Amino acid sequence: MGSDGPFTTAQLELIRSQPALAAPPGVIANFDSPSNNNKLAIAVIAVCMTLTALCAFVRAFTRIHHLKRMRLEDSIGLVALPFFVAGTWILGTIPQNSGLFVHQWDIRVKDLETFIYDYVRITILYCVALMLTKASILVEWVHLFVPVSRTPFYWICHGMIWSNCCLYVTTIITINLTCRPRDRIWQRYLPGACIDIDAFNLFITAFHLVFDLLMLLLPHRVIWKLSLSTQQKVGISTVFSVGVVTCVCAAGRVVSAVMMKASSDATYAYSRHLLWGLAEITTAELVFCVPAIPLMLRHPNVLHRIRAFVQSRMPTRQSRENISPLHSQHDAQPEVSGREDPMYKYPWTDGNRDVNLAEFQLGRSRESHTSNHLEVRPKKYQGGILRTTEIDITHDY
């Protein structure tokens, strides 16, 4: 009979077919169709993937179409996306295998191996994605708030960048070296030794929460010292307050880490921890991409043109003084000379429609054949929009 490590093949198959955890008193294990929350997990995964894709599109669109340049933070954020997609893809395959939010006593040891192995891979990929995303956020803040000299804000951001990288690199190394041999991380029946990874998770998630809170507060100190109006400061501060959601997700991970430490039901507790991690990285992408949304809305685009088209079809409010001359002399040909005539003022309105200017011809004034000034003779004024004027005003600070 062959052997596989310290166990024979028959012994290994027997071990892997056993329940992964003893069921609580009065509970009967259900290996065939255990209860789960796969539908909820798939919905969360779909929402997070959609939000991240939209944010990445907005960021790329504003950089390529409007600004027409890419900076260092854009490249770093672009590198982070494949790690996020890969980790989320693996997370999406778990419901097809062991399932998410399944109690450990409802699965076998071989299913637990697959779940823990996927958990390790997802955690590593998410750590890389979060490391790069937070670094790109801080690099962008340096470009935004430190235009010339190296202020204390510059050094704080760079210190946080390197601390962030060291923190996540340490996390990745620790996860990979949790057990000796490494296979014992997901095959706990192998002989060897492991550190208390649950205690490490609790420590590292609490550290991440503190880091996220510092990132939330950091730009506001600079924003409220800018030479702007209070309304502008509130608007900019609101954009940079999206990080509140990231802090909430980081706090959720801390709570889930506490439950992981207190519970022996690893599959259920780890499922909660994975979804909070997915939410945290999604909101970090929002923090990175949300400042690009006002830039996109400020430039002409499809949404802006649709809004202008709708506004052009809305009725305009005209005063009685401007309307009465037009109705009282409906068939008259108004004359517009070099001098401003108060009797014939047209209600110019803003919109987005084409006007056939060929109907407007130049002619001589009928009152004075000796004068050389020109007049505009409209065919007949129908109250439509004559011209659209759009002005973009941009302030750079």
Rank of each mutant, 00 (worst) to 15 (best):
K233N: 00
V242F: 13
S263P: 04
A250D: 00
S241E: 01
F211A: 12
V234M: 15
A251Q: 02
V248D: 04
R253Y: 00
H208R: 15
L216C: 08
K225P: 04
G252E: 02
M215Q: 07
T246W: 04
K233D: 02
H208M: 14
S229E: 05
V222D: 06
I236L: 15
L209K: 01
A257G: 01
V239W: 10
H220K: 05
R221S: 13
D212G: 09
C249S: 11
W224K: 02
Q231I: 15
V248G: 00
G252H: 03
F240I: 09
S227V: 13
D212V: 09
V242K: 06
V242Y: 09
A257S: 14
A257E: 08
D265I: 05
F240R: 02
K233T: 03
L218V: 05
T238P: 03
L228D: 06
Q231R: 14
F211N: 13
V254R: 00
S241M: 10
V245E: 03
V210G: 08
R253N: 09
S229N: 02
G252D: 03
L217F: 15
T230Y: 09
G243S: 07
F211T: 12
R253F: 00
V234Q: 09
M260C: 13
V210P: 06
S237M: 10
L228N: 00
L218M: 10
H220E: 03
L216Y: 05
F211Q: 15
S264V: 10
A251Y: 11
L217I: 11
A257V: 05
Q232C: 11
S256C: 10
G235I: 09
Q231E: 14
A251D: 04
I236N: 02
K261L: 12
I236C: 03
W224P: 05
M215C: 08
W224D: 00
M215G: 10
S256F: 06
Q232H: 10
V234R: 10
V239H: 04
I236T: 07
V245Q: 08
V244L: 13
G235Q: 08
V242A: 13
K225W: 04
I223F: 07
V234D: 08
G243Y: 00
K261I: 03
V248E: 04
V258Y: 08
D265T: 08
P219F: 08
A250W: 01
D212S: 15
G252I: 04
M260V: 13
V255I: 08
S264R: 02
V248N: 00
A262Q: 12
S227L: 12
M259G: 12
V255E: 00
V239G: 07
D212A: 10
S263T: 06
V234N: 05
R221M: 07
Q232W: 11
R221A: 10
M215T: 01
R221Y: 09
T246L: 09
